[in-house]
């Protein structure tokens, strides 16, 4: 009887530590943040002493031009980097999906940029963008052109940040698409080849559609991560010049530490979370709709037979 009891308890014993840690250090903080977003709270106060201000933080933020600017910068940054990385990553995967010597070495080298600390990535690129000692401006100058203000001009700074992110994360898309390509059914490709499909036709009509489910998940993962980028930008430009590269994550951390407005920072975090939730659900819904449609088409096709 006792043994049976112990056995029934085992799964809970196995789960308990993880559940406890996540409840204390993940769920509780998120709930706390939602509560804090309704407070006028600065870091020297205990949360109990902070004044309850209802939705004021949210309303203030909506009319705050700086917040709207960094919201826009965040969206622009995510859209631009994810588009470029998807095109480059999938393109490279299609191009390099061949039976060549040293492919595994190549893949190893490609994941290096993702593995090293974002802080270090920022550091490397800041050095390369350096106006006098950086390699870019040195090369440009030695060819006799005007040096480029990589980090000191708003538009260039945005481009510089995008380039660094593309360098770091294109390999992620590349690796995932390559894995997807290599797990495609060989029979489909063979059938297409026998039917005389050209390389392009194979890519457009066979490979890409078959890869689509993986590509959508990849896109979603990358999009979520693009909203989390912070360290690289912090080291490269710290949001400047002006607000040209100040993405929301950065603004949240500055609002909390420099302006000492914890309530407002929490409200901002909530806006960011809501945005991410909407995007994820939109993506999921789209995925489900596509699946349903293919299932329907397949069924129709089978009925026709």
């Amino acid at each position: 009887m006792q043994i049976a009891n112990a056995n029934r308890l085992t799964p809970y014993l196995f789960l308990a530590p993880a559940a406890l840690v996540m409840a204390v250090a993940l769920l509780y903080p998120i709930g706390y943040m939602i509560y804090a977003s309704f407070l006028d709270w600065n870091p020297s106060q205990r949360i109990g002493e902070a004044e309850f201000v209802g939705l004021r933080n949210y309303v203030n933020l909506l009319s705050d031009a700086a917040f709207r600017e960094s919201f826009w910068v965040t969206l622009k940054f995510a859209a631009v980097v994810v588009t470029i990385e998807m095109v480059l990553g999938v393109g490279l995967a299609l191009l390099l999906d061949r039976n060549i010597r040293g492919m595994s070495v190549l893949r190893t080298l490609f994941i290096l940029p993702m593995m090293i600390a974002p802080i270090v990535v920022g550091l490397m690129w800041r050095y390369m963008y350096h106006p006098s000692v950086g390699i870019f401006n040195r090369t440009i100058k030695s060819m006799g052109f005007e040096p480029i203000p990589w980090l000191s001009d708003g538009n260039w700074a945005f481009a510089s940040v995008v380039i660094a992110d593309v360098w770091q994360w294109t390999p992620f898309i590349f690796i995932l698409s390559l894995a997807a390509l290599q797990s495609l059914p060989q029979s489909a490709m063979e059938a297409a080849r026998i039917d005389g499909a050209t390389g392009w036709q194979q890519i457009v009509y066979i490979k890409l559609p078959l890869m689509m489910p993986v590509l959508i998940v990849t896109l979603l993962l990358r999009l979520i991560d693009a909203f989390k980028v912070l360290e690289v930008i912090l080291v490269l430009t710290n949001g400047g010049p002006g607000l040209s590269t100040e993405i929301l994550s950065l603004r949240i951390s500055r609002t909390a530490s420099e302006f000492r407005e914890l309530g407002e920072a929490a409200a901002m975090s909530n806006y960011l979370l809501i945005l991410l939730v909407i995007l994820t659900f939109a993506m999921f819904a789209y995925n489900k709709a596509v699946e349903a449609r293919t299932a329907r088409l397949r069924k129709a096709a089978e009925e026709d037979l």
């Binding site: 903080p29 804090a36 912070l230 994550s249 914890l262 975090s269 979370l273």
Partner: peptide
Amino acid sequence: FMGRDTVSLSTLAMRMVPPAVLLVPVFGI
């Protein structure tokens, strides 16, 4: 306990939370 779907879904949900969002509450708590 739960299906794999529930777990993958909650993993994805947790992955969505940027560290910057945890900044304020973790500091406070």
